[in-house]
């Protein structure tokens, strides 16, 4: 795997292998010495054009546990905000000898442009691009589901037959996109629940079931996993829904809705949560909630991703 740009690129075998390597990495976290020498001498650049402390420190922890050198390049407050282009930034990082670039960018496709550009020879890992994808989030979500469902027997397994209901702002969500493709690849059944304003118009071409009504969706079939997406502040005043109260009433995982779910249904959220809006505190803090596991598993999955990208065989010109 030269880059990780989208979960659409992952075959079932490649995805399961990544999840299995993540299991190995998680095992390291349980040891007294959490550090592996695997990426000693490699330089990983966290290139963040958008603020995301959570994702950045997750990648940073992952790289450091593998003994890579980490450079954090926050484009906010750097020359980028004064107009330096993606091209110039990439060429600068290339000149500094970056082996892998973890990029978070507000524009969909920026990591793909970087990977195809020839401006830099490093492996590119998409850490969230616009409203496109966030593949390591989907991998850590799948990893979390697999561990909860299969426990110690997770290795080698997919998510065949697992029903996953994703609720919220699908149209603007890179997490939802990456999850839809990866979960499909792993054999899960995905249902999307949102008002039509927050679904892409062409969502009928996706390998999912659609429902506009959360109560209807939950009554029709009990999901093994319910994943609540964050409602961004900027959607509040742009006619996607009348107001936060109505959203919470109709599409939120309220305490009442959560209480009707069986104890076996997992409650997931990629964070950060709007408690009381898309998810109630009772649901978020319940034993079914995987929110903190997702954070911990994020480091393991990102270790596996960095390891796979940085040890992939490159075509070397003679």
């Amino acid at each position: 795997m030269r880059h990780l740009l989208s979960t659409t690129e992952l075959s079932r075998e490649a995805a399961i292998e990544l999840l299995d390597i993540s299991e190995d990495m998680a095992a390291v976290a349980d040891r007294e010495n959490k550090k592996l020498p695997a990426l000693r001498g490699k330089t990983v650049v966290n290139l963040f054009f958008e603020d995301s402390t959570r994702t950045r420190i997750s990648f940073e922890a992952a790289a450091k546990r593998l003994s890579a050198d980490v450079i954090n390049f926050s484009a906010k407050g750097s020359s980028v905000s004064k107009g330096e282009s993606l091209k110039d930034t990439a060429q600068t990082l290339s000149a500094m000898g970056a082996d892998a670039v973890v990029i978070r960018h507000g524009a969909s496709g920026a990591p793909a442009v970087l990977a195809a550009s020839g401006w830099i020879d490093a492996g590119i890992i998409n850490a969230g691009d616009g409203t496109h994808e966030h593949p390591t989030q989907a991998l850590l979500d799948a990893f979390t589901m697999r561990r909860r469902i299969h426990g110690a027997g997770s290795r080698g397994k997919g998510l065949d037959g697992v029903s996953v209901t994703i609720v919220g702002d699908i149209v603007h969500s890179r997490v939802a996109r990456s999850n839809v493709w990866l979960l499909k690849t792993l054999g899960a059944h995905v249902r999307l629940v949102a008002p039509a304003t927050l679904l892409p118009v062409a969502v009928d071409s996706w390998p999912v079931t659609i429902d506009y009504d959360l109560d209807h969706a939950l009554a029709e079939s009990t999901p093994d996993v319910i994943m609540m997406l964050r409602i961004q502040q900027e959607r509040m005043n742009d006619a996607f829904f009348p107001n936060p109260r109505e959203y919470a009433n109709v599409w939120g995982l309220s305490t009442a809705r959560w209480a009707k779910l069986p104890a076996t249904s997992l409650v997931m959220h990629p964070g950060p949560m709007n408690r009381g809006l898309e998810i109630s505190s009772a649901a978020a803090d319940s034993p079914q909630s995987t929110v903190l596991e997702q954070v911990a598993n994020g480091v393991s999955v990102r270790m596996a991703t960095l390891y796979t990208v940085l040890t992939s065989t490159r075509e070397v010109s003679a």
């Binding site: 616009g130 409203t131 496109h132 994808e133 118009v201 062409a202 071409s205």
Partner: peptide
């Protein structure tokens, strides 16, 4: 706006 834009997040 259509199937491709939905997938590409544009």
């Amino acid at each position: 706006e259509g199937e491709v834009s939905a997938r590409l997040g544009l």
